[in-house]
Design a protein around this nucleic acid. Sequence first.
DNA 1: TAATCATTCCAGCAAACACTAGAATGATAA
DNA 2: TTATCATTCTAGTGTTTGCTGGAATGATTA
Lengths: 215, 215
Amino acid sequence: MKDARKIKDLLYEQVARIGKVFSSPKRLELIELLCQGEKTVETLAREASISVKLTSSHLRELRMAQLVETERQGKNILYRLANRSVADLWVQMHTLAEDRLVELQLALQKIATRPDDLIASDRDSLIKAARKGEVVVLDVRPSEEYLNAHLPFARSIPLEELRQRLSELPKDRSVVAYCRGPYCLMAADAVALLKDEGFTAFHLREGVAEWAISK
Amino acid sequence: MKDARKIKDLLYEQVARIGKVFSSPKRLELIELLCQGEKTVETLAREASISVKLTSSHLRELRMAQLVETERQGKNILYRLANRSVADLWVQMHTLAEDRLVELQLALQKIATRPDDLIASDRDSLIKAARKGEVVVLDVRPSEEYLNAHLPFARSIPLEELRQRLSELPKDRSVVAYCRGPYCLMAADAVALLKDEGFTAFHLREGVAEWAISK
DNA sequence: TAATCATTCCAGCAAACACTAGAATGATAA
DNA sequence: TTATCATTCTAGTGTTTGCTGGAATGATTA
């Protein structure tokens, strides 16, 4: 009887190790970044706006829970998610959070400059329209992330280059911009810029990881 | 720019609220229990072997993250998961843990008295065999949990009553026992008892929640 | 009214955690 | 060798957490 208690505690403790990794905001941000593809510590630190040392220690937690893998490439060390299911768990967790937490829903509403900028993601019809060329699906993430994975029929113009490359986009058709996911501000910025310049632009909340999981 | 940081931090902080709930072993145990159906605080405390007061405070965390709902029923208060996706997240998290953490794999191996007691869950063929009556699928959880939900064609004999009710089971066919899930010891105990008594018995690792999610 | 179920508040304790800073270490490339 | 990328150690700080115990409170039933 006492033994049964002990072994049960041990089991739940192990699962809780995974939960602990997902209980820190900064680690979640790193996970989301790693969902976009492998990255060096420096890149992760810069994109998450934290020190390299702190990044390193958060990555250590991820490593100890076996959720990431590393690979040396020259002077740099590349981190990547160990598994598709790590990204899936992140998506499922933030989806549940969005479903349950009113505070999160409110905060998310502030991101889209206007609610009508948001496009309801009807996966099939968006693909169909993109295939026919009726809309332009625009990936505004850094180009390495686009190269790693992107939505079907998407074109890449990183947010930084968008202003200079406006001429590549059509004014007679809709542009649907997306970025890393619902917590990334790049697509919203892109849509604001595009609308300013007279384009018809919409904001797709989903990123590649969310898209991959949606049924 | 500074604003973008702040709003991002806010978003990840909200998701981390969910992660925090899943980062305590005792809370995970409570979640697993709640996956079996609604329960009173007293029941949860007894089944998780912790004090009512501690149970109450863990349930408070679950409530504040909007992951459970409560309903007064007479003198008791019933807790239930707010949503199917809470159970799904628990299953997905412990599945990932089992996939990544060697320590967990080792600990799980100790549960099954013998590894060959475990049956590989080939969902379709098990259902087919159960429908034909070639095997008896046996639910050894308390009967309220069976009544709340159970596997197709499963019969209910709670572990506590099993010894007295052995005559209800056939000796010429296999018995496949299951309980709450991989971290529950009841099915393993049942299999050990049945084999002792000359039955052909196997242990199905999955519980109802795992079964519901498996593709 | 008294008994039961559950929550809450108080206080306290030990442990863990997030973050920062300084200094040392190791591995690699030029 | 020197510079770069990354980790590690030490050390400190302030916060949060899990758990315990005692006492009070509320809601419901009998």
